[in-house]
């Protein structure tokens, strides 16, 4: 019994530690929110005033109306959702191919896929720009979406996760006559739900925050995305940081909601995998 109590105490100490460190992780975010409610002159004021007095709620509508943010958010949604769906679909299939099939040249193809992750965007930008231009995709949604879908991170991620999925499950499905596509979509995907969702959340995060590519290929204001809008607060010699923080706070909400949803589905994924025995 005393040993159990000691373990209990240890456990709660651990919980406290995790929660405490959570506060440390959270502090900069709180500063961001607090700054979004301050007048410009106080944004970098030290020592920090966590609760602005009085909070400038007007910063939010002001920032929102300073540029056409409703449009920018709509564009960001369209682009992020399209990229996420396409990338999860195609990268998932490619990762499955690399993990659960054997074919000639597989190793070389895998290494080639990985190599596309290793060059920084700065050197690929101009050549990619030329390709997109020749496709007539400058200033279009296709231009914002398709080149971004072509990202190997998802392939690698799905391959690695699927490697730890027992082959027996895949084989059983094939023997049941599920067919190759059926096996993938009806058996493999539900079984690796946590992996699929992880990829989705990462792809969304990446696209939602992307700046350089949309900035380069879009010159039409009606196609601009949120990060470009954020950058517009950075004027030549002054940045309205409170506006940047206000829009950023708003921009984080969809991600936070998505993450909540994602966590619940996580648990569903586990339940399914238990069922599937």
């Amino acid at each position: 019994m005393p040993a159990g109590r000691r373990q209990d105490a240890l456990y709660w100490c651990g919980v406290l530690l995790v929660a405490g460190w959570g506060l440390v992780q959270l502090a900069p975010i709180l500063w961001m929110i607090s700054t979004s409610l301050k007048p410009l002159r106080e944004v970098f004021a030290l020592p920090i005033q966590w609760v602005p007095r009085p909070p400038q709620w007007a910063n939010y509508p002001e920032a929102w109306n300073h540029f056409p943010f409703a449009r920018y958010f709509a564009n960001s949604f369209i682009v992020s959702a399209s990229v996420t769906v396409l990338n999860v679909l195609l990268a998932g299939m490619a990762g499955y191919s690399l993990a659960k099939y054997r074919y000639f040249g597989q190793r070389a193809l895998f290494i080639a896929v990985l190599s596309t992750l290793m060059l920084p965007i700065e050197v690929l930008m101009v050549p990619t720009f030329l390709i997109v231009k020749s496709l007539g995709w400058l200033n279009t949604y296709q231009g914002l979406v398709i080149p971004v879908v072509a990202d190997a991170f998802g392939i690698f991620l799905m391959r690695q996760y699927l490697l730890s999925l027992p082959d027996s499950l895949v084989e059983a499905a094939r023997i049941d006559g599920a067919g190759e596509l059926g096996t993938y979509f009806r058996i493999v995907v539900p079984l690796s739900w946590p992996a699929v969702l992880t990829l989705a959340i990462f792809t969304w995060r990446e696209t939602w925050d992307a700046f350089v590519w949309p900035f380069i290929i879009i010159t039409d204001d009606s196609l601009r995305t949120v990060p470009i809008g954020l950058q517009r607060f950075q004027e030549q010699y002054v940045t309205t940081y409170n506006s940047v923080m206000a829009i950023s706070t708003v921009a984080m909400i969809p991600m936070v909601l998505l993450f909540f949803f994602f966590q619940r589905a996580f648990i569903r994924g586990i339940a399914l995998s238990g069922l599937k025995e």
Binding site: M125, V126, F129, L130, K133, L138, F215, I216, T219, D221, I228, Q231, R232
Partner: peptide, 18 residues
């Protein structure tokens, strides 16, 4: 008319002929 165009974009556009 297009505003907020930084030099990076101008350089890329000159290179691409746009």
């Amino acid at each position: 008319f297009e505003t907020d165009v930084k030099s990076l974009k101008v350089a890329a556009a000159i290179a691409a002929g746009t």
